[in-house]
Amino acid sequence: MLELSGEFPVKLLCKTMGINRSSFYYWKKHLGTPAPRTKNLLDNIQLFTEYHLKYPSHGYRWLNAKIRLDTGAAFSDPYAHKYCRIAGVKSKAKHYKYKKPGDPGRIFPNLLSAELSIDGPLQCIVSDMTAFCVKGIHYELTLYMDLWNNEIVSHALSAKRGDRMTYISGLENLLELKKTHPEYKMILHSDQGSVYASKAYNELLPMYVNRSMSRAGTPTDNATMESINGWIKAELFMDLHVTGEKPVEQEIDDYIVFFNEERPAYSLNYLTPKQYREAHVVA
């Protein structure tokens, strides 16, 4: 109607639409100066939309936590859901389906199946390798993550298929870090991959490291690490737009910093791994 008011008399348009002229002029007056509540709603919708464009792999709860971390703006989850629903914001990441457990491991027992009491750093480390391609080049990334605060404490990258050194280099860095916490024994959990099961790999482990393995063909035995692997690929390519324009090694190092220091984690009540660790040290 506003567009037509320049071509037809307002009186005629209001009569045709069945509304009062005063209502039309009231609406027109407030169109450019919305009420504070309406403006606040629009601003918040815009904020969540901007964060969704930057991190499209995540849903409203994570976006809400990231906004709180970055800006200090605090919204309840129902309001965050409302803003995202109005804006049509949904996670674009694919989620993995549950797989039926496989046969028990025959190399090392699955210590994660017991009720572990993890109350400090480096008590239980989980590891896995994930692969991805950038500009036609195949990369393999081995990660070591602390189950206590979901912090990636060691990683290694290679552009060579089946490179055993990503596992070895990551393990050596992990063992160096472990020297800073000699008071803890450590469980190292992985799948039954050929390198993890090899004699050469396990002979590197000191006596204070207890070895643990998932059942064959059962990624749910290492659910946290498997979940992280899925998120890493989604975030690398959907959110951080890894393209290979910079050295991939540098982009991975930058992502690890983002993961540990700038990425809220649901399992940590939306603290980052670094925030959780620092809160524990203060306590």
Rank of each mutant, 00 (worst) to 15 (best):
residue 127 S to M: 08
residue 80 A to V: 03
residue 121 P to G: 10
residue 125 I to V: 14
residue 68 R to I: 03
residue 79 Y to G: 02
residue 136 G to S: 11
residue 16 T to H: 09
residue 87 A to K: 13
residue 23 S to R: 12
residue 41 L to M: 05
residue 37 R to Y: 02
residue 37 R to P: 00
residue 126 V to I: 10
residue 100 K to I: 09
residue 108 F to D: 04
residue 62 W to Y: 14
residue 27 W to V: 07
residue 79 Y to K: 15
residue 109 P to W: 12
residue 122 L to K: 04
residue 25 Y to C: 07
residue 86 I to D: 01
residue 129 M to L: 15
residue 41 L to F: 07
residue 50 E to A: 12
residue 98 Y to K: 15
residue 116 L to N: 07
residue 112 L to Q: 02
residue 87 A to M: 10
residue 115 E to C: 01
residue 16 T to A: 04
residue 29 K to E: 15
residue 112 L to R: 02
residue 36 P to D: 13
residue 29 K to L: 13
residue 70 D to R: 02
residue 64 N to L: 05
residue 15 K to R: 15
residue 119 D to K: 05
residue 38 T to C: 05
residue 74 A to T: 15
residue 100 K to W: 07
residue 103 D to H: 10
residue 17 M to E: 10
residue 131 A to K: 07
residue 15 K to P: 01
residue 29 K to P: 04
residue 120 G to W: 12
residue 99 K to C: 09
residue 69 L to Y: 14
residue 121 P to C: 11
residue 68 R to Q: 14
residue 129 M to I: 15
residue 44 N to W: 01
residue 55 Y to V: 00
residue 45 I to S: 13
residue 122 L to I: 09
residue 49 T to L: 06
residue 135 K to E: 11
residue 125 I to Y: 13
residue 103 D to L: 14
residue 38 T to D: 13
residue 21 R to Q: 15
residue 46 Q to V: 02
residue 128 D to Y: 10
residue 39 K to M: 11
residue 98 Y to N: 12
residue 65 A to F: 12
residue 38 T to P: 00
residue 65 A to H: 02
residue 99 K to I: 03
residue 107 I to C: 07
residue 43 D to A: 14
residue 47 L to W: 04
residue 129 M to F: 11
residue 29 K to M: 11
residue 112 L to Y: 00
residue 33 T to P: 03
residue 34 P to I: 00
residue 101 P to E: 08
residue 82 K to V: 05
residue 96 Y to S: 13
residue 58 H to M: 08
residue 54 K to V: 03
residue 26 Y to D: 08
residue 106 R to L: 11
residue 134 V to L: 11
residue 44 N to M: 04
residue 19 I to M: 12
residue 132 F to D: 06
residue 30 H to W: 14
residue 134 V to Q: 07
residue 17 M to K: 09
residue 109 P to D: 10
residue 68 R to D: 06
residue 90 K to R: 14
residue 36 P to R: 14
residue 20 N to C: 08
residue 120 G to K: 09
residue 59 G to Y: 08
residue 48 F to Q: 01
residue 78 P to M: 08
residue 55 Y to W: 02
residue 21 R to W: 04
residue 135 K to D: 10
residue 107 I to S: 07
residue 30 H to K: 13
residue 15 K to E: 14
residue 80 A to Q: 04
residue 45 I to K: 11
residue 101 P to L: 09
residue 111 L to H: 01
residue 85 R to F: 03
residue 102 G to A: 09
residue 94 K to Q: 10
residue 117 S to I: 05
residue 112 L to D: 01
residue 131 A to L: 02
residue 131 A to D: 11
residue 76 S to E: 06
residue 116 L to G: 01
residue 116 L to S: 05
residue 29 K to Q: 15
residue 22 S to I: 02
residue 89 V to M: 05
residue 130 T to K: 03
residue 99 K to Q: 15
residue 79 Y to E: 04
residue 67 I to E: 07
residue 39 K to P: 01
residue 121 P to K: 12
residue 91 S to Y: 08
residue 131 A to F: 03
